[in-house]
């Protein structure tokens, strides 16, 4: 998988590149509009992570240019602006997703994977990882061929963990992924605890103990 990250903030760019290097992505990063134009003219990427505010141009213009070149690379916008108008403008110009800063890297990872899956024609709704076989359209999951009966929350949690497998996913990221960010209140982690507890119990029933580990209460890791 070939990934281009366009982000003018050097340190944030570094974090993203470091995170995705671990996902066996070939990652390239640029910090301005001009070098981004060079990159997209020269090569084809599976996915472009695009910041809208660049020092020498607007990310939306880059998106327009990309579509003019008849390239259909996946584009996910990361922006500090979170108004509906910006979102609609971005999506209208052919962006595939829109993520508002500050975001969790695990969330970005999950979104990119979802996009890439949608692009690949054969297995668009099927997620296979290790012993898991997950049908995203039918919302069913099997583990070692045995059907797991999961609630909506547990299913979303499992997909999220599978997308971020072999990584520690912070409980804040999980809470925000499932809870949304509409409310002023800091998400209650009770919910995350209980969902994890239930998921672990159901996996244990299928003979897979210790697939999910808690990391000092900071987060959880699904090892595959």
């Amino acid at each position: 998988m070939h990934l281009l990250v366009v982000e003018d903030e050097q340190t944030l760019l570094q974090s993203i590149l470091e995170y995705f290097a671990q996902e066996d992505f070939i990652c390239e990063g640029v910090v301005n509009y001009a070098s981004a134009v060079n990159k997209i003219e020269d090569s084809v990427y599976d996915c472009i992570v695009l910041d809208l505010n660049l020092p020498d141009g607007n990310g939306l213009r880059l998106l327009q240019y990309l579509r003019k070149l008849k390239k259909d690379d996946c584009v996910i916008i990361i922006s500090a602006r979170n108004s509906l108008k910006d979102k609609i403008a971005g999506l209208d110009l052919g962006a595939d997703d829109y993520l508002t800063k500050p975001f969790h890297l695990s969330e970005l990872n999950a979104r990119i994977k979802a996009l890439l899956r949608r692009r690949s024609q054969h297995t668009s709704d099927i997620l296979i990882a290790g012993i898991f076989f997950i049908d995203l359209a039918a919302r069913t999951a099997t583990c070692d061929g045995q059907k797991l009966s999961l609630t909506k929350g547990e299913f979303d949690l499992l997909v999220y963990l599978v997308n971020n497998k072999n990584r520690v996913v912070s409980r804040q990221a999980i809470a925000e992924h499932i809870y949304g960010d509409q409310s002023d209140n800091i998400p209650s982690f009770d919910f995350v605890y209980s969902q994890i507890k239930n998921l672990k119990r159901k996996l244990k029933e299928k003979g897979h103990d210790d697939l999910i580990q808690s990391v000092y209460g900071l987060g959880y890791k699904l090892s595959l």
Partner: peptide
């Protein structure tokens, strides 16, 4: 608020790298 979003995103991403 807008300007603070980016530094917050940086802190958040670094924290995620740290816990890994």
């Amino acid at each position: 608020s807008h300007e603070m979003q980016t530094p917050l995103a940086i802190i958040r991403s670094k924290l995620e790298l740290l816990i890994n």
